[in-house]
Simulated assay, not measured.
Amino acid sequence: MAEVYQNLGCPIEIVSLPGRRGFSAFNNGTIDGELYRLPVGAKNYTRSYVQSEAPLFEITNSLWVKPGSKRHSDGPTGYVIGVAWQEAYLESNNLPKSGHRDIGDMIGHYNAGTFDRFLAEDTNIVAAIRDGEFGSDNVPVQLEVLNAGPLYHYLGTEFAPFMERLSRYIITHAPFAHEGML
């Protein structure tokens, strides 16, 4: 997205924030927008906003388990604190949980045997597997896709003219412009 903004002649500073803090920072004007968010998250905006016309990409979120794990477990499920869909899933299924500050911390505890299952966005785990972050006998397997959806870009309404330009760009330029995304 930094390159897209640069191509459109708009400087951008990208700040990494946990999910809930992103809502707060956007609502109080500390940040001008959010790079990507599921549309359901927009209900947490109290500040008026505009959404990109097309999604930037689609994600899937899954339950990942250690090979050989049983479908159900009395043990805790790893998750990242502050990730709303993970917290909601654990709460609605009344599951024991093991909360972690970020995905790296969660992977470390999985590798240490603290739990044999965890919740995560799939591309993060595919990348961690590719990068060798799991032991060869400990590579998790995707047990169940829990949800999937498109991620859109959000900005405060004062940036509506820019959002129109950005939307045109993502509709017509790779990697955004491909079948199934529009």
Rank of each mutant, 00 (worst) to 15 (best):
Y89R: 01
F176M: 05
E87V: 08
M1A: 15
S24E: 15
G33E: 07
H173V: 13
Y110T: 05
N138P: 07
S98C: 14
G99L: 07
K70E: 11
G19F: 11
T114L: 10
G33I: 04
Q86S: 03
E58S: 12
I171V: 14
A174F: 12
Q6W: 04
W64E: 00
I31H: 01
F176W: 10
G99C: 07
F23I: 02
W85R: 00
P175D: 00
A120L: 10
E13A: 10
D131E: 15
E58P: 01
L38Q: 00
I103R: 00
Q86C: 03
T77C: 09
M1H: 11
E179T: 04
T172R: 00
D122Y: 06
T172C: 08
M1F: 12
Y154W: 03
I170W: 11
R168D: 14
S52G: 14
W85N: 09
V50H: 01
L143I: 13
Q6S: 12
I14F: 09
E179R: 06
G78L: 02
D137T: 14
Y45H: 06
V141Q: 00
E164H: 07
E121R: 15
V40G: 13
G33A: 14
I81M: 12
T123W: 08
R117E: 06
S98W: 04
V83F: 08
I14H: 03
Y79G: 10
V65N: 02
H173A: 09
E121F: 10
P18R: 10
V145H: 03
E144R: 11
N7P: 05
I170L: 15
I12R: 03
L119V: 02
V4R: 00
N147L: 13
E179S: 13
D74N: 12
R71M: 14
E58L: 04
V80N: 02
V80F: 04
F118Y: 05
N28S: 02
L182G: 14
I31V: 15
N111E: 10
G113D: 09
W85K: 01
D116A: 03
M106D: 06
A128I: 07
L95N: 08
V4T: 15
T46Q: 15
T46F: 14
E58M: 12
E144M: 11
I12T: 12
L63V: 13
D32F: 01
P140G: 01
I170Y: 08
H153D: 11
A112M: 14
F57E: 05
N44Y: 05
A120R: 04
E179I: 03
W64C: 01
L8C: 05
M181H: 14
V15P: 05
S92K: 15
V80S: 08
V139E: 08
S16C: 04
Y152L: 05
L166K: 03
L8I: 07
P96Y: 02
M1N: 12
A148D: 08
V126W: 09
